[in-house]
Design a protein around this nucleic acid. Sequence first.
DNA 1: ATGAAAGCGCTAACAC
DNA 2: GTGTTAGCGCTTTCAT
Lengths: 322, 322
Amino acid sequence: MTVSRAFKADSLVSAETRETILRTAEELGYVFDSTAANLRSQKSGFVAVTIPSINNANFADTVGGLSDTLSRRDMQILLGYTNYNVEEEERLIEQLLRRKPQAIVVTGGTHTQRARRLLQTVAIPVIETWDIPADPIGHYVGFSNAVVMRDMVNHFVALGCRRIAFIGGDVERDARGSERRRGFVAAMQAHDLDPSRLIAAGPPPISMREGADAMARLIELYPDTEAIVCVSDLAAYGALTECHRLGIAVPDRFSIGGFGNYEIGEVCVPTLTTINAHAREIGERTAELILDILDGSRPGADVKIEPRLIARDSSRALLPRH
Amino acid sequence: MTVSRAFKADSLVSAETRETILRTAEELGYVFDSTAANLRSQKSGFVAVTIPSINNANFADTVGGLSDTLSRRDMQILLGYTNYNVEEEERLIEQLLRRKPQAIVVTGGTHTQRARRLLQTVAIPVIETWDIPADPIGHYVGFSNAVVMRDMVNHFVALGCRRIAFIGGDVERDARGSERRRGFVAAMQAHDLDPSRLIAAGPPPISMREGADAMARLIELYPDTEAIVCVSDLAAYGALTECHRLGIAVPDRFSIGGFGNYEIGEVCVPTLTTINAHAREIGERTAELILDILDGSRPGADVKIEPRLIARDSSRALLPRH
DNA sequence: ATGAAAGCGCTAACAC
DNA sequence: GTGTTAGCGCTTTCAT
């Protein structure tokens, strides 16, 4: 029991005893067993997190924010990748819950029936992120992916563009991507503009290469397009490089907008107009929400993130041509 | 006991009994407790992994390869970020070991004294990756970061370049980055060339922006440089954009080479000459090595990865000028 | 094919 | 400030 106390920072052991114990432990190569401690105290110190892909700077930033904030309270993240696949997400959630996390964070509001049931039944905080779910399971920290595209369309319309196209992924797999496409269509309709210039660039996530290929198709199908809204900065950058290769000037001939405020967008030539979704803040706010709920101190309220459009050099006012 | 068996896929329970149990469990919202199972069986199902940064496509690919290969055997990854800091790595290793992982994977061969001791003492496989350590703790799956830079220097020399510069990070923090710088210097000396054109772009990891800033300084300091070796594709891309902005043609005036085969390098204009370090394969081979050792079937040998130079449009033969 | 007993390494709760 | 007892939810082992 004294050994146990010696390993807990704030418990009552004489300084001398503790020192002896810790030194001896180090000599013996003893390593404290969290597994046993967690079983007994019914606190795993884990927060389970599922993200669509590990190889995405936005989600990586969110995980970074979560991880850094939670580690200040000695909690660790148990991470899983869904590969943009709800069935995979279901398997993952089930597997993660077996580790008895103290909270679970999932991306977006679209899940299988069974995954929803698992999350509703489990007696820990559930936080959906990167979206505002139509029917939240527990809490959420996110924003409307549709509204975000409205902002981008409004930006282009304010610049005088009317023939605006959208480059995104194949429809169903990426819920947030589809939501952005829907938001684009709705915004175009609200302006009485033709919302049918939609290029499907392939299964999510859309790579730079797929963005470039989609741009080539777009130029062929709708050569008189004035502005292009892309589902992410990666697709937008791909589109930009395709223009480079074809000797097409951006923003002179096409304005281009992306999403996600990736590093590439502020370094490439021209810099990319984009939307900052505050990826790291999403993680930090989610972690704070979790800590509030676990503490029971503050009530723990949903967080609406306000993405911000960043106008850069890839979009500019249309010069009068006609 | 029968319930326990019903949840283990391959154990002997009548099909009927198992079905009843699983159905009832689902109705009750019962979730199997891995924590308790692991404590009793002394198998956590975890492999601990430390990487310098979550926000790096190379390390993300390695983790992806590890994760996918290990998940086929129902093992999970417990991930930690060292932030390119060996003290942070030490803390992390200690914390991760408390979770009783069945193996631990660390990046590179540079660690604090105490971290080395912890890893030497612990009775699980230890694998160092992304490097060939001078004094391996256990096994390794990696390549020589110095040799890799020699290949790049040789490439430029074969193209006729003699005034070659290096853009990398501040010296000590990123062991692999420093190793690449040392490799650059050694290779230049082997060719009897001046190895002193070294630009320190800032603390690792070097961002695209820092690569661009370093390029600006390089042009000022050594305007007659013919080729530039960059510590990563991100730095190389930044350097490329700086040239764009200044109206300097690449590869006409400067040849540029990167490292890591990031997606950006095959899409940007011009495409980037780089070195493919087979990041995903590093993860896969590491996972296979771990499984071999845990099985006790095959002996489990170190793996030497062979990075491959990919010549693209950002480097080309120097035209005779003099 | 199923069950009973013991125990994995800790900590909660209660002495003293 | 330190010690004793019991038990977290499983699996190992041995019976039947």
